[in-house]
């Protein structure tokens, strides 16, 4: 049972980063449906840089810090650039956000295929993966088995939770968060109060995409032990669903991500499920999201609504 929960939390980190990034983006009023593509891009460029680093050593000793730091930086920067592209299209050129987002997903998946095809040896991923999965050395006794639930993760899970908590704090308790939320809720008001709507939308989208990109990288490096798999896009859609599940709150998203992780890996832990049943079980996260949507609509509390300006491009001249 503990093994199942640990697996759920580990996979949850991917959803958590994806949804935290998307929450920050959506709080600025940008509906970025390109998140699945961005997570692919993050994974691809992170892994690519890792393979370049490992290959360049020519069999020399791998520095554990660099093996983790380089791919994280590359994944973040590449994904943030994808966010910059999205912001440029929607904020500056005022393109439709849904169309741009979906195009970004298609683009991200295609770019990922290309980048990975250029990697000479994907086995370098699994070589480097062990640095992502290094656990805290802790001697468990008979009585401290339950601590495994909290301690048996690589740095990625803790990083994801810290990012989510910091984001929640920033949004709720700081001036930057207040301004960001006002931009997403009512850009005309924010503009009238002297807040730079364009800067906030660009900033939130790029940082949000950067965080989401890390989710893609961690999925490969941590959950899959460096085994390349194209399932990242599906993770991305679940992350978008998780935003709604978490009613736009990164702290709620932490719990939500564990639930999503549990639902996602549940079929592997139940004996004797058929192929069709597995497919049905994998629908559960979406079903849960719909249930949450229905419940929040019935409760009719304005705080649980999406940001009022979500998906709408802002023109100052339009009154």
């Amino acid at each position: 049972m503990i093994g199942f929960l640990i697996g759920a939390i580990r996979l949850g980190a991917t959803f958590l980063l994806g949804s935290t990034g998307e929450i920050i983006t959506q709080k600025s009023g940008n509906l970025n449906l390109g998140i699945p593509g961005v997570m692919c891009i993050g994974a691809a460029f992170g892994c690519f840089s890792e393979s370049v680093y490992v290959t360049s050593l020519n069999g020399g000793e791998i520095n554990p810090f660099l093996a983790v730091f380089i791919p994280i930086m590359c994944a973040f920067i590449a994904s943030a650039l994808a966010g910059l592209l999205f912001s440029f299209m929607t904020v500056t050129l005022r393109a439709n956000q849904n169309v741009t987002g979906l195009a970004l997903t298609t683009f991200g998946v295609g770019l990922t295929n290309y980048v990975i095809s250029q990697v000479k040896s994907t086995s370098t991923f699994s070589v480097a993966s062990k640095y992502f999965t290094t656990l805290i050395p802790f001697k468990y006794t008979e009585n401290t088995q339950w601590l495994k639930l909290f301690l048996s993760y690589g740095p990625t899970v803790y990083l994801a939770i810290i990012i989510a908590l910091v984001s929640a704090f920033l949004l709720k308790k700081t001036r930057i968060g207040l301004h960001l939320r006002s931009v997403g809720e009512n850009p005309a008001t924010a503009d009238a109060m002297g807040i730079n709507v364009t800067a906030y939308r660009y900033g939130a989208t790029c940082i949000g995409c950067g965080i989401a990109g890390l989710g893609g990288l961690f999925f490969i490096m941590d959950s899959l032990y460096g085994y390349w798999e194209y399932a990242i896009e599906a993770m991305g859609w679940l992350a978008v669903a998780l935003v709604i599940f978490a009613v736009w709150r990164p702290n709620v998203s932490i719990i939500g991500s564990f639930i999503f992780g549990a639902l996602y890996i549940a079929p592997n832990h139940i004996k004797g499920v058929t192929f069709v049943q597995t497919g049905l079980l994998k629908m559960l996260p979406y079903v849960v999201t719909i249930v949450v949507l229905i419940i929040t609509s019935i409760r009719n509390k304005k705080e649980n609504y999406p940001p009022a300006g979500l998906g709408l491009n802002y023109y100052r001249e339009e009154r």
Partner: peptide
């Protein structure tokens, strides 16, 4: 901003 409190609206910006 509708979902903000009076004070949040007042210090906005």
């Amino acid at each position: 901003v509708d979902v903000f409190s009076a004070a949040e609206n007042i210090i906005l910006g």
